[in-house]
Each structure stands twice: as structure tokens, then as C-alpha cells.
């Protein structure tokens, strides 16, 4: 990997450093996913399955935080940001949006054989694309996408690429060749560091994704979007799609939420409150 300080003067991707502590021109890759807008999903009341056809698609929320963080790092330290996504050709719109946000290069990984890939197969496709892209310093993913909520693609990708990973990052700083990251462990924050290249998965708290301006959108529409198919990536059918997945999704249903319609009757507010608390305890909503 590139970021051995001694390679700086010879590597034309990176300018030489005045001060060896400051990193110059990192290459940051952001793999992201375009998902259906889960707010817009309706449920078929007969089958309890979500209706996803015709639902608008968007960049998964936390993936936008990943893109934002990459662009912020580029704005501060220079370098470039490459966005990649595996998906159908409609995902080009999402790539266009990343270009409008400030991404420099966009790649769509698209092939019918990628369909129905699980997190393992997806990570394989992404890893192949990243290898093909060449040198990089940072990979930033969202902690999870809001459709699958598996939180696995980032960690699996780091494993396949054999680089360190820091997950659930809520704050990141770069010092020389080091990444210092604050991890969200729910109960506490943990500060860790790692040498680049490293893969981060970030949480929603890390930043507020920017909204591209009309000018940014217009500029983005003049930038190319590259498409790589399975054969461009040297991927065969056994490793991706249904065949290459370890997990098969059999069915997606929406849990039925039904109201019990319990009415608490009492003379006074105090009695009503007491009755209500009793009912809640009895229903097992709270444990006393």
C-alpha cells in the first residue's frame, strides 16, 4: 500500500511533504448503496409484504455521512474521493449525486450476475473493484444501510482487503499516516488509532451531509460515470449473486402491529395513573 512515507517522493499520486507529519493527497474510496426510500414503502395488507416497486430510491442515509466525511477530509488535506456502488443502472443517479456533493470519480459496478448478492458476495465485488482502482489510503463506509441493517459489508470488505478496520466511528482526525478515530460503543466512546490504509465505518453523528447546489449539480452532470461489469472485474458467477451468497433471503414480511385498545377507567387522575401503570406492567412493556 502507498502510504509508506519513503515512497512519497517517488509516487506521483502524492506530493512530497514539507513536514513529514502532514499527510498529502490521500485517496479515499467510499462504497455506498442506493436503497428504496424506506419512508415511502407501503405494506400489502393481505400478504404483510412491503411494496417496493415504484418507490423512489436514494443514497442510504448513513452512506451519505460517509461521503460527506470523505469530501471533508479531501477539502482539508487534498487528494481525491472515489465513490463506488454495486447496483442496477438506475444507481447512476445516486452516483451523479455523489459527484454533485464533491466526489471526484464515480464507478458503477453493475452486472445481472450481481443480483441477490448477500453481504459476503457484495463485499467480494467491492473488493475486486477497489483492487482494480489501485492505491488508496482510506475506505469509508456507512455503519449500515437502512434497508438491510446488517452492518456487515464494511467489516467484510476490510477482511477481504486485509486492512485494519475501525467501526462505528463518530469522529475522525488524520495525523500524518495515522487515523485517530472515536468509536461509539453506545455506553462509552473509545479512541483508537491505526496506520493507513484503513477502513472506517461511520455513524450518523459524524457530520451533517451537505446539500449540493444547483451549480454543483450542473457541474456533476458533465462528469463521467464509469461502469464496470463482472468481466471487467474478473468475477465469476460462483462468487456472487445467489450462487455466491452464504445467506439466502426467503421472505420479507412486516410485523403486524395491532392495538389492544385497552381503556383505563378510574374516578381520579391518581387512580387512573395507578391503573395505567399496573396495566403497562401487566402487559410486560416495562419490568418493575
Amino acid at each position: 500500500m502507498p502510504f509508506d512515507i519513503s515512497s512519497l517522493t517517488t509516487n506521483d499520486n502524492h506530493q512530497s511533504l514539507k513536514n513529514s507529519v502532514v499527510r498529502a493527497l490521500p485517496t479515499i474510496i467510499v462504497p455506498f448503496k442506493q436503497i428504496v426510500d424506506i419512508k415511502e414503502i407501503k405494506v400489502d395488507p393481505n400478504t404483510q409484504t412491503p411494496i417496493t416497486v415504484g418507490i423512489p430510491r436514494k443514497i442510504s442515509d448513513v452512506d451519505k455521512n460517509a461521503l460527506e466525511e470523505a469530501i471533508k477530509i479531501k477539502e482539508k488535506h487534498g487528494g481525491k474521493v472515489i465513490a463506488i456502488t454495486m447496483g442496477p443502472s438506475e444507481a447512476k443517479t445516486a452516483l451523479r449525486e455523489t459527484l454533485a456533493m464533491g466526489v471526484d470519480e464515480a464507478y458503477l459496478l453493475s452486472d445481472p450476475i450481481f443480483e441477490n448478492s448477500d453481504t459476503l458476495a457484495t463485499a467480494r465485488v467491492l473488493a475486486k473493484a477497489i483492487e482494480k482502482l489501485g492505491e488508496y489510503d482510506l475506505i469509508i463506509c456507512g455503519e449500515m444501510t437502512l434497508d438491510g441493517l446488517s452492518a456487515q459489508v464494511g467489516p467484510r470488505l476490510a477482511e477481504l482487503l486485509d486492512i485494519p478496520q475501525i467501526t462505528y466511528v463518530r469522529k475522525v482526525t488524520i495525523e500524518g499516516n495515522k487515523i485517530i478515530a472515536e468509536k461509539d460503543l453506545e455506553e462509552e466512546y473509545e479512541t483508537v488509532e491505526a496506520e493507513m490504509p484503513v477502513l472506517l465505518t461511520v455513524t450518523r453523528e459524524i457530520n451533517e451531509p451537505r446539500i449540493p447546489s444547483l451549480r454543483d449539480i450542473m457541474k456533476a452532470s458533465r462528469k463521467p460515470i464509469n461502469t464496470w461489469t463482472a468481466s471487467d472485474l474478473g468475477i465469476s458467477k460462483e462468487n456472487v449473486g445467489t450462487e455466491g451468497s452464504a445467506v439466502q433471503i426467503l421472505k420479507v414480511t412486516v410485523p403486524k402491529v395491532e392495538r389492544k385498545g385497552i381503556i383505563v377507567k378510574a374516578e381520579t387522575i391518581e387512580e387512573a395513573a395507578e391503573e395505567l401503570v399496573k396495566t403497562i406492567l401487566k402487559e410486560g412493556v416495562l419490568r418493575g
Binding site: 443517479t93 451523479r96 454533485a100 446539500i211 449540493p212 447546489s213 444547483l214 449539480i217 456533476a220
Partner: peptide, 12 residues
């Protein structure tokens, strides 16, 4: 596509 992205940006 430009107009769709623009609409989305304004809405957001």
C-alpha cells in the same frame, strides 16, 4: 436527471 437531483436538493 439533473432536474430530479435538483428537486431532491431543494426538497431536502
Amino acid at each position: 436527471e439533473e432536474q430530479e437531483l435538483f428537486r431532491q436538493a431543494v426538497r431536502e
